[in-house]
Design a protein around this nucleic acid. Structure first.
Lengths: 329, 329
DNA sequence: GTGTGATTTGTTAGCGTTCACAATTGGACG
DNA sequence: CGTCCAATTGTGAACGCTAACAAATCACAC
């Protein structure tokens, strides 16, 4: 591999001049710049990252700490981060969490510090994460999805409470008065926020928020809950915490002969690509996860620039109406 | 941040001795080792990766080049790679491809070379990828999912042809004789392999492989195809290229009043977590993507060790029988 | 011409680590 | 008590780059 020195020799200048060219410094005459650039392409020179970051103390790398990467939301958020990072000239290093607990999180953070990343983006939707992060002093900017921007950790989030309100208001508008909620785990940021939105929208309409069941996000738990609800038949509409649970629920209803939306209306959350092909196609709340990822990276760049800035940004979700909801009979 | 020198001073030894300790060299007396280790923890020393890789010419980083990361398969493969890599003491850097073409692939490879990764794992299921990779001389080991281990590129793959045969044989065993295939795009390695397996199994049974339609993996395309097939009703069983298309197909059949499995049996491919909750629960072929990822990393470690070894490894898929298949009426 | 300031280029040192080699220590043995 | 060999420790240089400073060059006005 050719070095700065080799390029310099070929172009008939000093290595420092070459360095200036590749770093876009001003004060390099046009002629020299061209000669150097020619030498660079002729030799196929690429700058050595290790040497560079040894002296600049910057690795040009962002660490992404993630869990549930096989899920639609986190995966797309990662994609957004990656795109924005690469566009900004950063490398993206990942650490996936198999189990989410304090120790695993600290472990991954240490892993990133070993790599001397310039910043850490956290895509771990458990509330516990934010607590663990608060006690870490990473020494580099940290941006967490779902964080409200407290304790030196920046945050980007989808306004899920609002998304839940959209869903519930849609049901209210259709005339439903008994609207239940199949919530996600309450140790997840998203699970809590969506439940809050549901509750808030109901109370704003002067209704009780008493029909709450908690699942674990999986289609399986949606199915189990669906069987129970099919037997009880207390609500005329259900706001389900995510599309996967909604899928399981639809399955259970179908088996039990409960018609959707005839007997019960169902709204999901996330709008995965498949949700429009459920039986029936699912009304749900769309979140732009890629945008969320890009916003994270924006905050990150701010943080790297300023050193200590903490920011927040909110992405608005959107209701997608399909055939799983209608007026109650 | 403390340096080697600081630790050395504290422990009353030379920096080289400290280096020996952190690199687990023999020939360090027990006493010194303990003193050094104490100094390390006291000062909270962490070795500087940049300096290390400057001299060793190793970055301890694996680049993962991936597309379709939001999909179940690629995402889980990535997880497997990440786990194995971190266990082996490597960092994992990712580059996601938004569009798959020669230029984008070469771009991403260059990105990784800039980072001087020690190896590249490619999770891009398009046939084109393998061609593009063949012409690159990355200078580091390359392992590609789906590759057969040609042209200096190692490969890890699921035996999808076999998986397809399992699916078709299951249908044959149930007595079906008109078995169609809803294939994935034929510029995808997986799309081709599954179609080949379907074809091979049929011909082995002395049957025609003439009922072939090509989709694009999405639930939407499965739906469109499903509407067409519901009208035609030529096959008594369908082997669908993946679970998402199968979902769309089931939806279309349900709308058209075609009963599954009563009128038509349906088999999918992948076994995503939701597939057991489709209407009806889907018989499908399970692939262990995480294992695939781990195998990739095994090959990678071999490649890094030997310098030039090219290997192959095959993961066997497994048929999961659910309620979308039965004997024809 | 010559002085002056701005622009362009070169020189030197150092980032924190490992490698190759040199120096020291310790123990066994005659 | 000296010799020799192995085990342990230390020394200096190098990896490829950028930052800080020094030197050279140029343009322009007087």
């Amino acid at each position: 591999m050719p070095r700065l020195e080799d390029v310099a020799e070929r172009a008939g200048v000093s290595h420092q001049t070459v360095s200036r060219v590749i770093n876009d410094h001003p004060n390099v005459s046009k002629g020299t710049r061209e000669r150097v650039e020619a030498a660079i392409t002729e030799l196929g020179y690429r700058r050595n990252t290790a040497a560079r970051s040894l002296v600049t103390r910057r690795s040009q790398t962002i660490g992404v700490l993630a869990s549930e990467l096989a899920q639609y939301g986190p995966a797309n958020t990662l994609l957004g981060v990656e795109q924005a990072a690469r566009d900004a000239g950063y490398f993206v290093s990942i650490a996936a969490l198999r189990t989410v607990n304090r120790e695993a999180i600290l472990d991954a953070v240490r892993h990133f510090l070993d790599q001397s990343v310039d910043g850490i983006v956290v895509i771990v939707p458990h509330s516990e994460t934010l607590l663990a992060l608060a006690e870490v002093n990473a020494g580099v900017p940290v941006v967490a999805v779902g964080s409200l921007g407290d304790a030196s950790v920046s945050g980007a989030m989808v306004d899920q409470k609002h998304g839940a309100e959209l869903a519930v208001r849609h049901l209210l508008d259709q005339g439903h008065r008994r609207i239940g909620h199949v919530a996600g785990p309450q140790d997840w940021i998203d699970g809590v926020a969506r439940a809050e939105g549901w509750s808030a929208a109901l109370r704003a309409a002067g209704l009780e928020d008493d029909l709450l069941v908690v699942g674990d996000w999986s289609a399986g738990s949606g199915y189990d809950i669906g069987r129970k609800l099919a037997a009880e038949r207390t609500a005329t509409a259900l706001f389900v915490g995510n599309d996967q649970m909604a899928l399981g629920l639809l399955r259970a209803f179908s088996e039990a002969g409960v018609r959707v939306p005839g007997d019960v209306s169902v709204v999901g959350f996330d709008d995965q690509p498949e949700s429009g092909y459920f039986t029936p196609p699912l009304t749900t709340v769309r979140q732009d996860f890629e945008e969320l990822g890009r916003r994270c990276m924006d905050l990150m760049l701010d943080g790297i620039e300023d050193g200590q800035s903490v920011g927040t940004t909110v992405v608005e979700p959107e209701l997608v109406v399909r055939r799983s909801t209608s007026a109650p009979v």
